[in-house]
């Protein structure tokens, strides 16, 4: 119990210090663009009412979920294909690296040209940005399937879909998860950016609206909410990952020795 409290204390110490610094540093601020934190916090519950959460935050999250799901499915599917064939990999890998190197926000104006400015455009933008880390990590994971384990499968006649599920995907799953974690933060960035270009609702849209109407404390409160949202999603991701990959973390601990 004391250990959990100590860990919690360690995790919260820096955020608390930063928060305090922000509070004290802006306490007497008369700069219009940097309002006191106190004002921002007072505005927070007034701005982010249930109605507003439903009208602006929910659509953002739905688009994020849709784009992210598409990216995971496409990334894993393509990753397995590319990772399994040596020839396919040799042909595709330079191209994939090129696409990955393009900063995803650049894609927004391009995708707007053919996907319009509706929800489809935003989902496509999010998917197009998220797919790369998942794809490339899956390729790495599929390539790194253990040779002895692969021989074991062959000698027991485990092939086809059974091999794909029990050997390839399972053994690549730690890498796939690593790619998905990177993709999640990219997804949140793209969710906001895609709404800044052309939108009628959403978190990014609302924050820009506040800025344009000089509602500066409201704008800051939106940024705060965005931070909290990212934190919540990443905590949720870790929770799911630690359950799904319990074997992997257990194995790593076992390999590091009983000292821990």
């Amino acid at each position: 119990m004391t250990r959990i409290l100590a860990r919690l204390g360690l995790a919260l110490a820096l955020p608390a210090a930063l928060f305090a610094a922000w509070w004290l540093g802006t306490a007497g601020s008369d700069n219009f663009y940097v309002p006191p934190l106190r004002d921002i916090l007072i505005r927070f519950p007034e701005v982010w009412t249930w109605d507003r959460l439903r009208a602006d935050v929910l659509p953002s999250l739905i688009r994020l979920a849709a784009g992210y799901t598409v990216a995971v499915l496409a990334g894993v599917l393509l990753g397995v294909l590319v990772g399994s064939g040596r020839r396919v990999r040799a042909v595709l890998e330079p191209v994939l690296e090129f696409f990955r190197a393009i900063p995803p926000p650049v894609l927004v104006p391009v995708i707007m040209l053919f996907a319009g400015i509706g929800d489809t455009m935003k989902v496509v933008v999010i998917a197009a940005g998220c797919v790369w880390p998942i794809l490339l990590n899956t390729v790495e994971g599929v390539r790194a399937v253990d040779g002895v384990l692969a021989d074991t499968c062959r000698s027991y006649g485990i092939a086809g879909p059974s091999r794909l599920w029990h050997l390839v995907l399972r053994s690549a799953s730690p890498q796939i998860a690593a790619g998905m974690r990177q993709a999640l933060s990219i997804g949140i960035i793209l969710m906001v950016i895609s709404e800044m270009f052309a939108a009628s609702n959403g978190l990014g849209f609302t924050i820009v609206q506040f800025q344009r109407s000089f509602a500066i404390p409201d704008m800051w409160s939106g940024i705060l909410l965005l931070g909290l949202l990212g934190l919540a999603l990443s905590v949720l991701f870790r929770l799911v990952e630690s359950r799904a990959l319990a074997w992997y973390h257990g194995q790593r601990r076992a390999q590091r020795g009983p000292a821990r």
Binding site: D146, G147, V148, L149, D151, T152, S155, Y156, H166, L167, R170, S171, S173, W247, Y248, Q251
Partner: peptide, 14 residues
């Protein structure tokens, strides 16, 4: 059926 030397790598850790 084959039993390999590398027991640590012939069982499915998951």
């Amino acid at each position: 059926a084959v039993v390999f030397q590398e027991y640590g790598r012939s069982l499915f850790p998951w």
